[in-house]
Amino acid sequence: MMRVMVVDDEPLARDGVRARLARHKDICLVGEAGEGEAAIKMIGQSRPDLVFMDVQMPGMSGIDALRRIAPAERPLAVLLTAYENFAVAGFELQALDYLLKPIDDERFREALDRARAALRSRAHDGVAGTPPPWAERFTVRVGQRIAVVDANDIDWIEANDDYAGLHVGTRVYLLREPLHQLSLRLDPRRFTRIHRSTIVRIDRIAELEALSNRDCLLRLRDGTPLRASRTYVEQLHAALAAR
C-alpha cells in the first residue's frame, strides 16, 4: 500500500483529491492538512510515501513547508496549483509531478503511476545487484527482422493506438506498447511527457514558445515542431531546469 497525505487550504480541493484517491485500491490515505505548519507536523507523525501539496496557502506556502522537512524524511511530492511558473522551485525539492487546477483526471492517474514507479526505483536502489529500472533498449519488428533501438538514440515518441512510435532521426519504429505504459519505463531524467500522445527526449529540445491558450510549442534540434499541452507545461519546465 502507498501511504498518501493531502495538503490544501481549500476543503473542496481536498475532497476532490480524496475522491480520486479512493478509486485506487493500493492507496491508504493517512492524513489531511489545511496549512503548512500542520502539514509539517502530520508528515512527521504519519510518514507518508507521497503528499499532494498545494503551493499557494495562507501563511506558509506548500513549497516552504516541504523545505522545512529534512530531505531524508521528505515524502515524494505532487505539487498542486491554479497558477503556473513554480517548476524551478519544485525542482529544487525534487517534486515528482506538477498538477494544475482544475485537476485533469488522466494527469492525476499519471502522477500516481509516477509515484508507484519512483517507489519501485527506490526499492531497486536499495538492493545490491538489482538491474536499473529504466529501459535502455527496445526490440521492435521491422518486416522479417528484429531491430534493437537504443534509448539514447530516440528523439521523441508518439502514441499510435496500442503502439508507440519511436522517432530516431528520419526513422519511426513501432513498439507494441501503449504510450502510458512505456512512459513508466523511461528515465525521467532523459524523457518527459509533454502531451497525452507525446513524449520527448529532453536534450533534443532546442526552443519553446508560449501559446495564447497556455499550451507551448516546442522545436527540437532537428527542427521538428511538437505541441506541449498546458497540463504538462510545468513538468516540462522542471525537466528543462534539471538539465
Rank of each mutant, 00 (worst) to 15 (best):
P225R: 05
L175A: 12
R67F: 03
L119Y: 09
A82V: 09
R196K: 14
Y232N: 08
T198M: 09
I27T: 05
M53F: 01
R107S: 13
S197R: 11
A19R: 15
A72F: 01
R204G: 00
L12K: 14
A13F: 05
Q235P: 00
A89Y: 03
L186K: 01
Y98N: 06
E35Q: 15
A206M: 01
R23K: 14
K41W: 00
R221T: 15
P11L: 09
R201T: 13
V30E: 06
Y173P: 03
Q45M: 12
T130S: 15
I103T: 03
D15R: 15
R196S: 11
S183N: 03
V149D: 06
I27N: 02
R185A: 11
R185F: 03
E84C: 06
R67Y: 08
R18E: 11
V4S: 06
E37Y: 09
E35P: 08
P102E: 06
D125R: 15
P178C: 14
R23W: 02
A22I: 07
D54K: 04
A239W: 12
R122V: 02
A118L: 09
V30P: 03
A87N: 01
M53S: 05
R74G: 00
G165R: 14
I63Q: 07
N152Y: 07
S46K: 13
I154R: 11
Q45S: 10
R74M: 01
R193P: 01
H124E: 11
A238P: 09
G62I: 09
R243E: 14
L179Y: 01
R74W: 05
L240W: 08
